[in-house]
Write a protein that binds this DNA or RNA. Structure first.
Length: 286
DNA sequence: CTTGGGTCCTGTGCGC
DNA sequence: TGCGCACAGGACCCAA
């Protein structure tokens, strides 16, 4: 489900419910999501206070006052919802209920102080959670090989040129590679390539110089705009506060096969690359 | 090392 | 209406 803008939207929705508060209990409805929960998962979270809720790439990172970090990934269909119990009167109206989700797929419930419940629902169970020592973050398997965030100073045209040098895979695959740039998924790769007027089939190695500069700028812009819009809402995605993102109304190519490109010269085409859909304009993008 | 393909899982929407 | 198939926002893992 979520790419960087959606995860960032979820993070912002969870901050008021979790940051600064203690986790009183963790209820697991099953022993695993995509992977088994690590031994003692619920036990080591119980009683911990969330000092800060961060995001890296598509990962949510809850910093705990125990020196550990709770890592959460939403996979394809993961979502959080927040409910405030009757004794959360300290902040009436501060939390709203997310749209209904099938309770059969409520896999994790965090009981937070002040009567707040944060529920993780994930029909496909591609998501996962784990806990690691914050001090060892540089060695954390899920985080250690991530590339720069799109909005960081490290991410630039020259950086992309170097990262793509010698790569024979299509640029579509290059941008999906989380070690090149962190947080992009199928939607925003398609959109960024359209904005940069680069075909998804072009080989990475030929994206350099001015092309790489255009592409880096397009990635930065599309991610920033999508975050401002609260992400994209497809099917059932919603932010943790129940609000729907609206960036999907700004798609230029994604999901628009057969519809006219903004250039007016032809229609958007869909091809399969590595068994995933790529949407692009064969006239605009070369 | 890079690259491509299969895999996990459930739900939805389409054509027949 | 029912059924089967294609497809879905991710990313690990392994073979070549």
């Amino acid at each position: 489900m979520p790419e960087l803008p959606e995860v960032e939207t979820v993070r912002r929705g969870l901050v008021p419910a979790m940051e600064g508060r203690r986790i009183e209990a963790v209820r697991l409805a099953r022993p695993d999501l995509r992977f088994p929960f690590p031994d003692g998962f619920a036990r080591c979270l119980t009683g911990a206070r969330v000092t800060r809720l961060d995001r890296r790439a598509k990962y949510l990172l809850a910093r705990l006052d125990t020196g550990q970090t709770l890592l959460m990934h939403l996979g394809m269909s993961g979502r959080f919802s927040i409910s405030a119990g009757a004794d959360a009167g300290a902040r009436p109206g501060a939390f709203v209920y997310a749209p209904p989700a099938d309770p059969r797929h409520d896999h994790v419930v965090f009981e937070i102080e002040d009567g707040i419940e944060v529920t993780y629902n994930d029909p496909r169970r591609f998501g996962f959670m784990t806990v690691f020592a914050t001090a060892g973050e540089d060695d954390q398997p899920f985080l250690k090989s991530l590339g720069p965030e799109p909005d960081s100073n490290r991410f630039s045209g020259p950086y992309l040129s170097e990262a793509f040098a010698g790569r024979r895979s299509p640029v579509k695959a290059g941008l999906l590679d989380q070690s090149v740039v962190a947080g992009l998924g199928n939607i925003y790769v398609c959109e960024a390539l359209w904005r940069a007027r680069i075909s998804p089939r072009r080989l990475c190695a030929s994206v350099a110089g001015a092309r790489a500069e255009r592409l880096a700028a397009a990635v930065r812009a599309v991610i920033a705009e999508a975050i401002t819009a609260g992400g994209s809402t497809l099917r059932d995605y919603a932010g943790a506060d129940g609000a729907m993102g609206y960036f999907q109304h700004s798609f230029d190519v994604y999901g628009r096969e057969g519809q006219p490109c903004a250039c007016g010269k032809t229609r958007i085409r869909r091809i399969l690359q590595a068994n995933r859909s790529s949407f692009y304009c064969p006239v605009c993008q070369r």
